[in-house]
């Protein structure tokens, strides 16, 4: 029987975390769990469950659960374990079967971290340059590009490179 979906499309397909872990022996401690929305990345992303603590179910809503887990995101093993609570209700999780676990660890070992090098500075915008020249100020300066310091940000700035406003500039800088 073919299934016909009605209504709006959703990104979430899978099970909530409690639906998976609540049915496992010892609540699935030591098992690997991944999110379906992480499938968009080439690198392996998954969690290794360390501890599980269910919370009370409110009415008919999906039960939330406090899970402490080791997080591997885009081939990067986080040093500190993370807590999953506020997103644990999302029907987005998938259990990795035991026989595939080694495959995922191998993928992690063999994965090549993505590299992204961006220029460290950029030329002055043309109008700004004109304004500075008009005011008899130093117009030969370059603006420093500061990269946002996020945990998952892989971009690294190359101070020697300078960006300009040419049309094909950005494509040359992009490297993955």
């Amino acid at each position: 029987m073919s299934v016909k979906l009605i209504g709006r499309t959703t990104n979430l397909y899978g099970k909530t975390l409690w639906e998976i872990l609540g049915n496992l022996r010892t609540t699935g401690v030591g098992r690997l769990v991944t999110r379906n929305s992480y499938d968009r990345y080439e690198e392996p992303c998954f969690f290794k469950v360390l501890s599980v603590e269910p919370t009370a179910q409110i009415e008919e809503k999906a039960r939330k659960v406090i899970v402490h887990a080791e997080k591997i995101f885009r081939g990067k093993h986080y040093k500190e374990p993370v807590e999953i609570y506020s997103v644990s209700y999302k029907p987005d999780y998938r259990l990795i079967p035991k026989d595939e676990e080694q495959l995922w660890w191998d993928r992690l070992a063999n994965c090549k971290l993505q590299e992204k090098i961006v220029p460290g500075s950029i030329e002055l915008p043309p109008l700004m340059k004109l304004v500075l020249e008009r005011d008899n100020k130093d117009s030969n300066i370059k603006l420093q590009l500061k990269i946002r310091g996020g945990r998952d940000n892989v971009a690294k700035s190359d101070i020697t490179k300078t960006a300009s406003y040419g049309p094909s500039f950005f494509k040359n800088q992009q490297s993955s």
Binding site: V118, I122, L124, P125, M128, L143, Q144, L145, K146, I147, R148, A163, F170, Q174
Partner: peptide, 16 residues
């Protein structure tokens, strides 16, 4: 990529 570059550049211009 375009939005990221735009944000970064605008931030540096604002700083200047």
């Amino acid at each position: 990529r375009l939005f990221t570059n735009y944000r970064t550049t605008m931030k540096s211009i604002q700083k200047q």
